[in-house]
């Protein structure tokens, strides 16, 4: 990690605080696994070189708007994920290895067998979460295409697509259209009819919910 941080040609996104000391004083990005929930934390990190901060998916738009305004005063921009499974938790354990009856230290990288994650269902067979190694994600894909205009008006200029096992070129075009203010040719549900979408966090609700604009 220190070697990576020493390479000034790279833009590094820190997702653990342990990455911050070697990035101190140089431009870097803060990822969603470092908790930036308020303007005080944003200000502190920006003073030490954070130029862009990708927010935790659970933060509502009201918080993102406040942080974007604060960020303008400190040369730090806000990034919000708008597509894909949401990162919800990390663990010291690898649930993928566990599901394949392997130990974490000899996992044979079985997670590669599930490029879109391994679906976890309730005992009622309701899709709930997705396991990806030590990471737990949402089963639903986040979709905030219809919110991009509002976020742009609040000064948010970066929108993250989390790659899924689908035609990401089409997906990128879809969100490019949204970011450029053009009407989408098709709804996201039409592009990926087998996927359940959600946007509940945006307005402060349960993350799994799909609420109408």
């Amino acid at each position: 990690m220190r070697e990576l941080a020493a390479d000034r040609t790279l833009t590094i996104e820190a997702n653990d605080v342990s990455a911050l000391p070697p990035l101190h004083g140089r431009n870097h990005v803060i990822g969603p696994y470092i908790s930036v929930y308020n303007e005080e934390t944003l200000q502190y990190l920006a003073q030490h070189g954070a130029r862009r901060i990708c927010l935790s998916p659970e933060l509502p738009f009201s918080a993102a708007r406040t942080l974007a305004a604060e960020g303008r005063r400190h040369k730090a921009e806000i990034e919000v994920q708008v597509f894909g499974r949401m990162p919800l938790a990390l663990s010291a354990r690898c649930y993928h290895a566990r599901a394949h009856k392997l130990t974490k230290d000899n996992c044979r990288f079985v997670c590669a067998k599930d490029p879109d994650g391994l679906r976890l269902c309730t005992l009622d067979d309701q899709p709930f979460l997705a396991v990806n190694g030590i990471q737990t994600l949402s089963d639903s894909y986040l979709d905030l295409a219809e919110k991009i205009g509002e976020m742009k008006a609040a000064g948010i200029r970066h929108f993250r697509l989390s790659p899924q096992d689908c035609d990401m070129v089409r997906i990128a075009h879809h969100y490019r259209n949204a970011a450029d203010g053009r009407e989408p040719l098709k709804k996201i549900e039409t592009l990926l009819p087998q996927i359940r979408f959600s946007n509940g966090y945006y307005d402060g609700h349960e993350g799994h919910r799909r609420l109408s604009p």
């Binding site: 990390l90 979460l129 993350g207």
Partner: peptide
């Protein structure tokens, strides 16, 4: 607690309420 504390949104995904917030 088996998830990394302070980085877990599982509760809010299901209920809208989380440890962090």
């Amino acid at each position: 607690c088996v998830m990394a504390e302070g980085r877990c949104n599982l509760s809010s995904y299901a209920t809208g309420k989380s440890p962090n917030m």
